[in-house]
Amino acid sequence: MAEPVLSLRGLSKSFGALKATDDVSLDLRAGEIHALIGPNGAGKSTLIGQIAGTIRADAGEVWLAGREITGHSVAARARAGLARSFQVSSLAMEIPARVNVRLAAQGRAGGSYRLWGSAARDAALAAAADAALVRVGLSARADIPVAELSHGERRLAEMACALALAPRAFLLDEPMAGLGGEGTARLTDLLADLRHEAPILLVEHDMDAVFRLADRISVLVYGRVILTGTPDEIRASQAVREAYLGEEA
């Protein structure tokens, strides 16, 4: 078994008496979509924060491609190859998607303290941004301010930003949230394809999408991973039904 790309080892985080994350260990393997599901209040956001670097874990480690990144800042994790999307699209609204994506390409390429030259006329950055925008199918709408894009298009723009980082792993926080049927279908196709570039840790409420896309699913309840398995195993599990799907035993 090859080494996992992203690996959480015994992550724990408490807020006062509340154990928001309780000894979570989880692997993201090359080529897979690993979905993380759980009812509201299960601690998904807290866990994502610890992976992305916005929340410091009390205990445990985060490893990416064989390097420990537990103490790294958000930016250092992105440089190490962890691309994230936000639950609520987080882009600079007053500038076009292309410029947002170009900055991600710049973060990847480095030279962000270069005071000479023009970023807008940098052929390498333009090519990287262009490729990412083509990949998500947003080229035609990439030059108007993000504020004028639809919700679904903003999602795609964020995906293009993530792609432009040429990441080792994607961390996607409810990418389907608020999308209509067509938007969800479009994004589902994209994600199904993206896993071959880098594996995806997908936190998602849309169960249809999760069961369609995921190679493996981990179920988080009260901060603990109660089960990790294939979609079929998750469907069949009585424990998951009780805890998550709310069915009486």
Partner: peptide, 24 residues
Amino acid sequence: RSRFGQALAMARMNEARLAASGIS
């Protein structure tokens, strides 16, 4: 207009996006 300026402007517009782009 430089790469630095683009990063500085993003620090104003959306700090989370700047960090997510790998730039502190």
